[in-house]
Simulated scan of single mutants.
Amino acid sequence: MPQTPSIYEIHDERFRQLIVSSARLEELYSECRWAEGPVWFSDLNCLIWSDIPNQRMLRWTPDGGVSVFRSPSNFVNGNTRDRQGRLISCEHGGRRVIRTEIDGTLTVLADRYQGKKLNSPNDVVVRSDGSIWFTDPTYGIKSDYEGYRSEPEQETRNVYRLDPETGELEAVVTDFGQPNGLAFSPDERKLYVADSASSHDVKAPRHIRVFDVIEGKRLNNGRVFCSLDNGLPDGFRVDVEGNVWTSAGDGVHCFSPEGRLLGKVLVPQSVANLTFGGQRRNRLFITATTSLYSVYVATNGVALG
Rank of each mutant, 00 (worst) to 15 (best):
Q3V: 09
E9Y: 08
H11F: 11
D12H: 10
F15D: 09
S22C: 08
A23S: 14
E27Y: 02
E27D: 00
S30K: 13
S30Y: 03
R33K: 12
W34H: 08
A35E: 01
G37N: 04
G37Y: 08
S42N: 07
N45Q: 13
L47G: 14
W49L: 00
L58E: 07
R59C: 13
P62T: 12
G64D: 15
S67L: 00
S67K: 04
F69T: 01
V76E: 00
N79K: 01
N79R: 02
R99T: 05
T100S: 09
I102L: 14
T105G: 08
L109V: 01
D111C: 03
D111K: 10
Q114M: 14
N122T: 11
N122I: 11
V125W: 07
V125P: 02
D129N: 11
W133L: 07
T135D: 06
P137Y: 14
T138V: 10
Y139W: 14
R149Y: 00
T156P: 01
R157M: 08
L162I: 03
E168A: 12
E170Y: 05
V172M: 05
T174E: 08
A183I: 11
A183F: 11
F184M: 12
E188L: 00
R189Y: 11
V193F: 05
V193H: 13
S196Y: 12
A197H: 15
P205F: 06
H207F: 02
D212A: 15
I214G: 13
G216Y: 14
K217Q: 09
K217T: 11
L219R: 10
N220G: 10
L232C: 11
D234K: 09
F236D: 12
R237T: 10
G242P: 00
P257H: 04
P257V: 04
E258H: 06
L262Q: 06
V265I: 15
F276K: 15
N282H: 05
I286L: 10
T290H: 02
L292F: 03
V297E: 08
T299N: 09
A303M: 02
